[in-house]
Structures are given as structure tokens and as C-alpha cells.
């Protein structure tokens, strides 16, 4: 591939959004293929409604979730990041979510220590049957982020210079 990272669609600044009155929350959701992704599918098949500001990045399992993903999402202008997978005991791969939970535990405290507003970070377990929970989670998270507004502190840091 000749495309190099950082020069593709994606280098454009996001500052105009932070100032425009029509600001829309930007939420990134890293969700596992087997439970939460399927739960979100179910919300669709059930024609439930939720705000359209969430962008899903599918990973096979929450075990695949590397905290680097979350930092990069904030670096790319996310206002909130959700990570969701199978409930304990339900992991398609038996233990990926348990390993993920350890990473979350450590990483969330690190983010908090560094002053990241923890309302902008959310972890959940949403099963394939919990279409309603997916909808409620996105609705609630969107409301929280809307209440907080753009993640100005982080964006200011990104845009220095």
C-alpha cells in the first residue's frame, strides 16, 4: 500500500466543529463481534431508535481492545469512547473479556490520574439479546456527552502549534 498513515483522509483538523453551533457529539464504540455487535444488530432489526452520533469499530473480542485505540480516538477528536463486549462468562473465546477487564481497570485509573474526564469513557457488557441495552447505553452516553460539550481540553492539546 502506498498510502501512509496520517496523510490519508483524516488529517483535516476538526476545530471548525468545536466552534460551530451545530456541534454534534462524536462517539466511538469499540465493540466485540459476538455479543455487542449482534446486540446492536438486534436493535436495528427491532427498529429501535437512538441518536446517530456513534461510530462503531468492530473488533473480534474485547480481548483485542488495546488501550492505544482509545488514546488514538481521543487524539482524532472523539468526545466519548465506549468499549463493550460479552458479559463475564459469555465470551465467545471464553476469557477475552476477563483479560480486557483487567486492562480497563488499570487504564481507566490511569486516565483519571491524568485528568481525563471519566464521564467520557464508558465500559459495558451488552449481550446479543440486549438490543434495548445497546439503545439505552447509546442514548444515555450521547446525552452525557452532549451535556459535557466538545472535549475541548483534549482538542486544545491536539491543536497546539
Amino acid at each position: 500500500m502506498e498510502e501512509s498513515h496520517g496523510t490519508e483522509a483524516g488529517t483535516e483538523r476538526v476545530d471548525q466543529e468545536t466552534t460551530a453551533t451545530s456541534w454534534e457529539p462524536r462517539i466511538v464504540a469499540f465493540i466485540c463481534n459476538w455479543c455487542t455487535y449482534t446486540g446492536a444488530d438486534l436493535a436495528g432489526t427491532s427498529r429501535m431508535k437512538y441518536p446517530p452520533y456513534v461510530r462503531v469499530i468492530k473488533i473480534p473480542c474485547t480481548g483485542r481492545f488495546d488501550p492505544l485505540f482509545m488514546i488514538k480516538a481521543f487524539e482524532r477528536g472523539a468526545d466519548g469512547v465506549l468499549v463493550s463486549g460479552c458479559h463475564p462468562g459469555d465470551c465467545h473465546y471464553t476469557a477475552g473479556n476477563y483479560n480486557a477487564r483487567r486492562k480497563y481497570t488499570v487504564f481507566k485509573d490511569l486516565l483519571a490520574t491524568l485528568g481525563i474526564d471519566m464521564d467520557r469513557v464508558r465500559f459495558s457488557w451488552i449481550s446479543a439479546s440486549e438490543g434495548g441495552k445497546w439503545v439505552d447505553t447509546i442514548k444515555h452516553f450521547t446525552e452525557v456527552i452532549r451535556g459535557k460539550g466538545p472535549f475541548r481540553e483534549y482538542r486544545e492539546m491536539i491543536d497546539v502549534g
Binding site: 463475564p88 462468562g89 476469557a95 476477563y98 483479560n99 477487564r101 483487567r102 486492562k103 480497563y104 481497570t105 488499570v106 481507566k108 464508558r122 465500559f123 459495558s124 457488557w125 447505553t137
Partner: peptide
């Protein structure tokens, strides 16, 4: 080391 292992009853309270 803690990131190389897990317990079934690790804290789950912060995961909604």
C-alpha cells in the same frame, strides 16, 4: 503480573 492473568471475580462494578 496482573496484566498476564485474571480472576473471575475481578472488580466488575465500573462496567455498566
Amino acid at each position: 503480573p496482573p496484566l498476564r492473568a485474571f480472576n473471575l471475580d475481578d472488580d466488575n462494578s465500573f462496567i455498566l
